[in-house]
């Protein structure tokens, strides 16, 4: 039977995986994918809490909203990555440290 706990555990695992991907991946695209995982971990949590606790539609709505945001974020982020690549001929984030300067 699906309980709140199991949903939260999946969400947490997904978040951890996503976070690990963000932290460890050198490739910008992979990092973006990690970000997507984190966002979806959040979505699972929203939906789970909405379903098991409030019996209302709010959680699902926010999840939908997050999905829309995530799409547009991904579009912007990909555009940035594309620009970075165009400027620096790399998407390796170790080499993209112009913030330091």
């Amino acid at each position: 039977m699906i309980t709140l706990d199991s949903c939260l555990i999946i969400g947490a695992a997904l978040f951890t995986l996503g976070f690990l991907a963000v932290l460890t991946k050198r490739n910008a695209i992979s990092v973006l994918m990690g970000v997507e995982l984190i966002l979806n971990a959040a979505n699972i949590n929203f939906v789970a809490f909405g379903f098991f606790r409030s019996y209302e539609i709010h959680g699902v709505l926010i999840a939908l909203f997050v999905i829309v945001i995530a799409v547009s974020e991904a579009a912007v982020a990909l555009a940035i990555v594309l620009n970075i690549y165009r400027n620096m001929r790399t998407v390796n984030l170790d080499e993209v440290d112009s913030l330091k300067k």
């Binding site: 932290l23 993209v96 440290d97 913030l99 330091k100």
Partner: peptide, 17 residues
């Protein structure tokens, strides 16, 4: 302090974590 500022967002995220 500059040593902490690597310019890599991932490092910052570690700090954040």
């Amino acid at each position: 302090t500059r040593q902490f500022q690597t310019g890599r967002i991932q490092n910052y995220l570690v700090g954040f974590l």
